[in-house]
C-alpha cells in the first residue's frame, strides 16, 4: 500500500515537472513549483521521513514560493521566447539521463534492509541513541548530538546566506528615494 502511494505521488511529481518545462509563463512556473514541493513533502511522508516532509512543506511550498513571487514582482514575469535550438540541451540531458539510469541497475533494490547504506553507522544510531541521548526522535538526536558540528556549520551557512542577501538587497534605497539611482 505504501509503495502504491509512493508510486502514484512520484507519477504526479513527474507530471508537474513536465508542466514546468512546457509552460512559458513564469508566474505559472513558480506556482507549479510550489505544488511540486508539496507533492515532494507527501512522498517524504510515504518514505517515513516525517521531519523532512515537515521542513519541505514549510520551506519549499511556503517560503521558497513567496520569495520567488517577490522576485517576479521585481523582475517581471515576461519570459523571452526561446531562440536557440533545443537540440543541444536535449541531447546532453538525454545522454546524461541514460547513463544515470544505467547506473541504477547496480543500485540495491528500493527498501532493501540489507543495502550498504543501512550497514554503517545507522544501526548504532537506532540501537544506542535512546539510551545514550535519551531522546525518542532519532532524527533530533542524530542532528543535534551525534552530528552537532555539522548542524553548527549548517546554521552558520544559513546565517551567512542571510547576511549576503542583506548585502545585495540592503536598505540603501531608503536614503535616496530616486528609483533610478542604483549607483552611489
Amino acid at each position: 500500500m505504501t509503495h502504491l502511494i509512493d508510486i502514484v505521488l512520484l507519477t504526479f511529481l513527474v507530471a508537474t515537472a513536465i508542466a514546468i518545462v512546457r509552460l512559458n509563463s513564469l508566474f505559472a512556473v513558480v506556482m507549479l513549483f510550489g505544488i511540486y514541493s508539496l507533492i515532494t513533502a507527501g512522498v517524504f511522508i510515504a518514505l517515513d521521513a516525517v521531519d523532512v516532509a515537515f521542513t519541505e512543506a514549510a520551506v519549499g511550498a511556503g517560503i521558497s514560493t513567496v520569495l520567488m513571487l517577490g522576485t517576479l514582482a521585481l523582475v517581471g514575469h515576461r519570459q523571452a521566447p526561446q531562440q536557440h535550438s533545443r537540440a543541444l540541451p536535449l541531447t546532453v540531458v538525454v545522454i546524461t539521463g541514460v547513463v544515470l539510469l544505467w547506473g541504477t541497475a547496480d543500485m540495491p533494490r528500493f527498501g532493501d534492509p540489507e543495502a550498504p547504506v543501512h550497514q554503517h553507522v545507522a544501526p548504532r544510531y537506532i540501537q544506542d541513541s535512546p539510551a545514550e541521548v535519551g531522546v525518542p526522535n532519532m532524527v533530533t538526536s542524530v542532528l543535534a548530538s551525534y552530528r552537532g558540528f555539522d548542524t553548527l556549520g549548517e546554521t552558520a551557512v544559513v546565517f551567512t546566506a542571510g547576511v549576503a542577501v542583506l548585502v545585495l538587497l540592503g536598505r540603501r534605497r531608503r536614503q535616496h528615494r530616486d528609483p533610478g539611482s542604483s549607483g552611489d
Partner: peptide, 29 residues
Amino acid sequence: YSNPLPHVLILTAIVVGVATTALGLALVV
C-alpha cells in the same frame, strides 16, 4: 525503523537550500 541518517542530512540541506535560493534570487534582482 527507516535509516535516520539521510533524514538528518536532507533536513538541514532543505533549509540551507532555501537560504542559498534566496541568495540566487537576490543576485537576479
